[in-house]
Design a protein around this nucleic acid. Structure first.
Length: 426
RNA sequence: GUGGGUGUAGCUCAGCUGGUAGAGCGCCGCGUUGUGGUCGCGGAUGCCGCGGGUUCAAGUCCCGUCACUCACCCCA
C-alpha cells in the first residue's frame, strides 16, 4: 500500500461512488416527508457563536462541555462548529423574525454536525443529520406529526428492524420536584464516582445506564411519567391518541433520556436493532423553553434530528439496496474522429432533453469503449462510426437483450427521452 | 476520555512453532475485421500501517505510535 501524505481527519466518514448514491438516497428519503408536510428548507451556518450552544443545548451536557470544536476567529470571537441543529434554527427564527409570521414555523435542514467524540462504527466526529423543527405551537397533534414524519422517512427506505421509544419528560412545573426525588433515591444507591457525579449534574441520565449492576438498583426508581403534572399528563395522553390516529407504533420508554438539556414533555428516540451500541438512528422531542433561553419569545417547539450516517448503516444491515441502479440511461461509443465530434454534439442534446448520458473518452478502441459502456450500467448504448455518420443514423444496442438496431439521428433524442420517462413512471 | 481486538495486493482474506509473500475477486491484455457481460489464456500490482528493539534472520516476537474496530461513556 502506498503511504498517502494526508488522511482525512480522524472520525470523519467520506462517501464516494458507489456508496455515495445510497447516502444521497437516504438523505432524500429522510427529508421527503418534511417537504410534503409544509416544512420549508433552511440553510444554516455550520459554526455559530459558542455561547448559543452553551445556553441553548446546556452547559452541563457532555455535548457542550466536552465534545465541541471551539475556536477563536481573527476577531477573537469564540465560535463553535455546530454539534446539533436546533439551537441554530432557534437563533435564526428569532434573528430573522420568522416568529412574527404565521405559526407554527415549520423548517427542515440537512447537513454536517460535529462532535469531538472517540470514533466508532456509526459514531463520527462529522455526522450527517436531517432534521426539522415546528416552532410556535403546543398542539399535541403537532408532536404526533413530527414523530410520524420521522417514522415515514424510515419506512420509505424499507427499514423494518427499528423501533420507536416514547416518553414525556415533564415541564418546568413538574420536573424540578421529580428531579429532587430522583436525586434522593439515587443517593441511596451504590454507585461509582463517575455515576455519582452524573447523578448530581443530570440525574435523569443515570436512568438509562446500560450496566446491569446499575440497572438492578434502579428497579424501584421513581419515574417522570408517574409524576407528570395535570397539563403534561393531558398533553402526553393527547399525543398518544394522535399517534394512534397516524398509525404510528411505539413503545413506552419511561427511562428514556436525551443528552440535550432543552427537552420537555414529549421525547422520543428511534433505535435500530442491528447497529450494536450506536443504535440510535434518530430522536427528538419538545423544547418549551429553548427559544426564550436564546433571547426570543416564549414559543414552544418540537423537532427531530435523524442520523443520515446511521440510517445508511441500518439500510445496509438490513440488506436494502438503497439508491442502486445505473448512473446513466445511455452511453455513447464513437468510432473515429468525425463520430467523436458528432457524439459531443449528441450528448449535449440528450442531456438537455433530460436523458442521463455518458460517452467513451480516451479513444480506447471499440472493445474498451464497450466495456466502459457496460460498466456504466447504461441500459442503452449508442454506437456511431463512419457508416452511421454517413447515413445520419446510429446503432442503438439494448445491453440486456444484446440486440441492436439502427435509429435515425433525427428521432433519437425523442425516442430515448420516451424510454427514460417511461422508466421513471414505473 | 477508559478498556479489549485488528492492521498483509484496489477489495476480502490465508501465511503453522521466526528463514526475505499467496489465493479469490477486481484491474490490464489476448482469443484477427466496428461490440460489453459469460468462458479460456496471459499479465501487472505489495515501504506485510508507521517507528524503534531482540535475532545470523522479523509479515511472524517485544515496545511505542497511528488508523480502524468492539464495549463503556455519549449520541445521530
Amino acid at each position: 500500500m502506498t503511504v498517502a501524505d494526508f488522511q482525512a481527519p480522524k472520525g470523519v466518514p467520506e462517501y464516494f461512488p458507489p456508496r455515495s448514491a445510497a447516502f444521497l438516497a437516504v438523505r432524500d428519503a429522510l427529508a421527503y416527508p418534511a417537504t410534503h408536510a409544509g416544512y420549508g428548507y433552511i440553510e444554516l451556518p455550520v459554526f455559530e457563536d459558542t455561547a448559543l450552544f452553551v445556553r441553548g443545548v446546556g452547559e452541563s451536557t457532555d455535548v457542550v462541555s466536552k465534545e465541541m470544536y471551539t475556536f477563536l476567529d481573527r476577531g477573537e470571537r469564540s465560535l463553535s462548529l455546530r454539534p446539533e441543529g436546533t439551537a441554530g434554527v432557534m437563533r435564526s427564527i428569532v434573528e430573522n423574525r420568522m416568529d412574527q409570521g404565521s405559526l407554527p414555523v415549520k423548517l427542515w435542514y440537512a447537513g454536517p454536525f460535529f462532535r469531538a467524540e472517540r470514533p466508532q462504527h456509526g459514531r463520527y466526529r462529522q455526522l450527517q443529520q436531517v432534521g426539522l423543527e415546528a416552532v410556535g405551537g403546543d398542539d399535541p397533534a403537532l408532536d404526533a406529526e413530527v414523530i410520524a414524519l420521522a417514522d415515514e422517512g424510515y419506512r420509505r427506505l424499507g427499514l423494518s428492524h427499528y423501533r420507536l421509544d416514547l416518553t414525556s419528560l415533564g415541564c418546568a412545573e413538574c420536573r424540578p420536584a421529580y428531579r429532587e426525588e430522583l436525586i434522593a433515591f439515587l443517593s441511596t444507591c451504590d454507585l461509582d464516582d463517575a455515576t455519582r457525579a452524573r447523578a448530581q449534574m443530570n440525574p435523569l441520565r443515570v436512568l438509562d445506564d446500560k450496566r446491569e449492576q446499575v440497572q438492578v438498583q434502579l428497579t424501584n426508581a421513581p419515574l417522570m411519567v408517574d409524576r407528570l403534572c395535570d397539563a403534561c399528563r393531558e398533553h402526553y395522553d393527547a399525543v398518544r391518541g394522535f399517534l394512534r390516529d397516524a398509525g404510528v407504533q411505539w413503545q413506552e420508554a419511561p427511562r428514556l433520556v436525551r443528552g440535550l438539556d432543552y427537552y420537555t414533555r414529549t421525547t422520543f428516540e428511534f433505535t435500530h436493532e442491528m447497529l450494536g451500541a450506536q443504535s440510535g438512528i434518530g430522536g427528538g422531542g419538545r423544547y418549551d423553553g429553548l427559544m426564550e433561553s436564546v433571547g426570543g419569545a416564549a414559543l414552544s417547539g418540537i423537532g427531530f434530528g435523524l442520523g443520515t450516517d446511521r440510517t445508511l448503516l441500518a439500510c445496509e444491515a438490513e440488506g436494502l439496496e438503497v439508491g442502486a441502479g445505473p448512473r446513466v440511461d445511455a452511453f455513447v461509443v464513437p468510432i473515429g474522429e468525425q463520430a467523436r465530434h458528432l457524439s459531443v454534439r449528441l450528448i449535449a442534446e440528450l442531456r438537455e432533453a433530460g436523458v442521463r448520458v455518458d460517452m467513451a473518452y480516451g479513444g480506447r478502441g471499440v472493445k474498451g469503449s464497450m466495456k466502459a459502456a457496460d460498466r456504466s450500467g447504461a441500459p442503452a448504448v449508442i454506437i456511431m462510426g463512419d457508416d452511421e455518420v454517413a447515413s445520419k443514423s446510429v446503432q442503438v444496442k439494448d445491453m440486456h437483450e444484446g440486440s441492436q438496431r439502427s435509429v435515425a439521428l433525427d428521432g433519437l433524442v425523442a425516442e430515448l427521452k420516451k424510454t427514460v420517462t417511461q422508466e421513471g413512471t414505473t
